[in-house]
């Protein structure tokens, strides 16, 4: 594989629910180390796109290629293998409520990767340390704050050693004072070279981290480009309006 070959390619992805077209032909590419941020109003299809890429929702049309291999026709075992390579972080964490933080991270290693328990425990602890939660390993999700839950869910996804991480508004259901700790973890991931695609409304964060911002509206990509371009020199009027609005909002939250 050459360096400029993309890891993940999405080609003309389409999805409709009943009469409503949620994705109207989305195409994009992720290269190693890329950090792409999806922005756009609610209902633009960002979350559906990420779910489709993780094969949690079947796309109606279009292709998804991992290392050049179309995964949309994959079944069963090959889907399970694919999902281990493409980690997913959810807006509402979805930690397994009956398991401690440590066991949340361990269970995929033990049950999916079939790694012996001791080794899995060691690796799970290492991932929890990485997100700064080793001392909370024995607590249950109900005993953790929202920010801590999201960090555990990131550790859980990382433990599977994914090549790409999809993050679906990872801080949207957090109190403002808790978003910082999650963003720091994501920043660390970025610094470590993780390839990521993230839907978010935190434009200032996207601006500092992303090498490309993708603006979606009504199930289509309106415009994409570097954060600088999207913020100061967007070609499309809608993009300019939207970026200016959320940028202003995050700089002056009281407005």
């Amino acid at each position: 594989m050459t360096a400029d070959e993309p890891i993940l390619v999405v080609q003309d992805l389409r999805k409709r629910f009943a009469e409503k077209e949620i994705l109207r032909g989305i195409s994009l590419q992720l290269h190693r180390g890329d950090i792409k941020v999806l922005i756009g109003p609610s209902g633009a299809g960002k979350s559906t796109l990420l779910h489709c890429i993780n094969l949690l929702l079947p796309a109606d049309d279009g292709r998804i290629l991992l290392h050049g291999r179309d995964v949309t026709g994959f079944r069963k075992r090959r889907v399970y293998e694919y999902r281990q390579k493409v980690g997913m972080i959810f807006q509402d964490f979805n930690l397994f409520d009956h398991l401690t933080a440590l066991r949340n991270v361990m269970i995929g290693l033990v049950r999916v990767k079939k790694i012996p328990k001791n080794e899995a425990r060691r690796r799970a602890l290492r991932e929890l340390e990485r997100v700064g939660l080793a001392e909370h390993a024995d607590q249950y999700p109900a005993e953790l704050s929202g920010g801590q839950k999201q960090r555990v869910s990131i550790a859980r996804a990382l433990a599977m050693e994914p090549e790409v991480m999809l993050l679906d508004e990872p801080t949207s259901s957090l109190d403002p004072e808790l978003t910082g700790e999650v963003l720091t973890v994501i920043q660390d991931l970025a610094a470590a070279g993780m390839t990521m695609m993230m839907a978010t409304h935190q434009f200032d964060f996207a601006e500092s981290l992303a090498n490309e911002i993708i603006f979606m509206e009504d199930g289509a990509i309106v415009e994409k480009g570097t954060p600088q371009k999207m913020l100061y020199a967007a070609e499309n009027l809608r993009t300019r309006e939207f970026c200016a609005r959320i940028h202003g909002y995050w700089e002056n939250p009281e407005r």
């Binding site: 069963k76 399970y80 999902r83 997913m88 959810f90 509402d92 397994f96 995929g108 999916v112 859980r156």
Partner: peptide
């Protein structure tokens, strides 16, 4: 049980039965 539990399990590579 919340739908997200099944989704999270699948996203980790669990089979439906698993």
């Amino acid at each position: 049980i919340k739908k997200g539990q099944m989704m999270a399990a699948k996203s980790l590579g669990f089979s439906h039965t698993g």
